[in-house]
């Protein structure tokens, strides 16, 4: 299962906190706000599902616009998740395994996209990678145009999703501790070897978890994409943007697409989370 319980005899830390054995029961009153909490999340989805015209669903979901949006959403969310892994894993390692002045500030900066409204993120990306932006003006001179392209969608999604992966993995790295790494190092393993054979396998569940969250966030990305990438079928109009547009002329189609988005998100999060925990 998880790395920390795979070799419990090696760790000095108590494992009771994560034991699967039934501990002392929860106070009964805890269940009341807990149930209310789940109602807050689930009820609007139920309300939406109740509005969906199920008979028209196949036709609404198989329109070229809907299929293009779904394909583009899956493609860009996968690409941005990959980008989050490539950039986020080293970032989490640096945050969790090293100490340097200004580390707290760096951590706060990594989390910035979580607190920024996505529209602001889009404006920031526009000011940087847009045609007249900080880097965009130079890229434009080289003949590279990011605005209004699928790359812009991936960039916007990566921007908003990266903190999810970094926070998830950094927590896992801290929880896993450094004992196994120290042992491997005393046995003569190189830092790269330790990283590849000890650290990353130990924290794999945390990485998977963070990647799933990053994917889910990318899938739902709306504001930054609309501001930065524009909206064009097959190129930049992802599922959330298609829902936003469908609302204008055909609210039933918007609801059907929204349901599709929920199902895709549930399937991805459920499948990967379920597998990593069983």
């Amino acid at each position: 299962m998880t790395g920390s319980t795979a070799a419990p005899h090696l760790t000095r830390r108590p494992t009771t906190g994560r034991s699967r054995r039934p501990g002392p029961g929860l106070p009964t009153w805890v269940y009341v706000p807990a149930v209310l909490g789940i109602v807050v999340v689930v009820l609007p989805v139920v309300g939406m599902a109740a509005r969906v015209g199920w008979a028209d669903l196949p036709a609404l979901l198989s329109s070229p616009a809907a299929l293009d949006a779904l394909r583009l959403s899956l493609l860009t969310s996968s690409a941005s998740t990959l980008a989050c892994i490539v950039l986020g894993v080293p970032l989490a390692l640096v945050l969790a395994r090293t100490r340097f002045p200004g580390q707290g500030l760096l951590r706060a900066l990594v989390l910035l996209p979580l607190v920024l409204p996505p529209v602001v993120g889009g404006l920031a990306l526009l000011a940087t990678f847009g045609r007249t932006g900080l880097l965009g003006a130079h890229l434009e001179a080289l003949g590279v145009r990011i605005a209004f392209s699928t790359v812009a969608v991936v960039l916007a999604q990566t921007f908003v999703a990266l903190p999810f992966l970094v926070v998830g993995l950094e927590g896992a790295l801290r929880t896993a501790g450094r004992d196994h790494e120290a042992v491997a190092a005393t046995l003569g393993a190189s830092p790269t070897h330790v990283l590849a054979r000890v650290t990353l396998p130990l924290t794999l569940p945390g990485l998977v978890s963070g990647a799933v969250l990053a994917f889910a966030r990318s899938l739902g990305e709306f504001g930054a994409t609309l501001t930065f990438a524009g909206s064009l079928q097959g190129r930049t109009r992802t599922l959330p943007l298609e829902i936003y547009l469908a609302r204008e002329a055909d609210p039933d189609a918007a609801l059907a697409l929204a349901l599709l988005l929920v199902v895709v998100a549930l399937v991805v999060v459920g499948a990967v989370h379920g597998r990593s925990r069983s």
């Binding site: 999340v41 889910a216 549930l266 989370h273």
Partner: peptide, 25 residues
């Protein structure tokens, strides 16, 4: 060692909320 694993489960739910929030924007 006390970082609760259920955080990740709840984070998953939070991600869904984020997804839905995106739809409602």
């Amino acid at each position: 060692s006390r970082r609760p694993r259920s955080w990740r489960r709840s984070a998953g739910l939070a991600a869904l909320v984020a997804v839905l929030a995106g739809c409602g924007a």
